[in-house]
Amino acid sequence: MISLNVNGKQHQIDADPNMPLLWAIRDILGLTGTKYGCGAAQCGACTVHMNGEAVRSCVTKLNRAAGQQIVTIEGLSANNNHPLQLAWNELNVPQCGYCQSGQLMSAAVLLRENLNPTDQDIDDAMSGNICRCGTYQRIRAAIHKAAHIQQEAAKI
């Protein structure tokens, strides 16, 4: 039995410790917001937070994830109201939407570590996440917007 803590909830799962976290999240826990895109840590669609870092769950085995704090897109905020989610909605970022869970999870790490990221910071943080629809320009704008939302919220 492997002990997994996902979105603050403890799970005991009976699975191969070599199974990537991605498949445990999707097929066993039924949290399908985390996506399979490449299985090779190339596209970032499977990005989740592990102890706050934006790990690629498709290459992170259960034996590494066991006992760690995992957060998926479903746990990014209580009410779809993380500053990034607000900005994503305001600027109509997603097209097909498939990569956006991963984009948001990556952006969340950037925004936590850098309250006012520059375009260069965004390039440096976000280039591990592929979007085939080409929403990059809007992701960039939405991260700037989210930084602004976050700063405004901090003033209150």
Partner: peptide, 28 residues
């Protein structure tokens, strides 16, 4: 390195592109 990966201060990458986000303790 594709993905515009950068060294960062500690050499372990930056933000959402930390080395250990993809590179495990052993070869995949």
């Amino acid at each position: 390195h594709t993905m515009n990966i950068k060294r960062g201060t500690d050499g372990k990458g930056m933000y959402a592109a930390r080395c250990s986000n993809c590179h495990q303790n052993e070869n995949t």
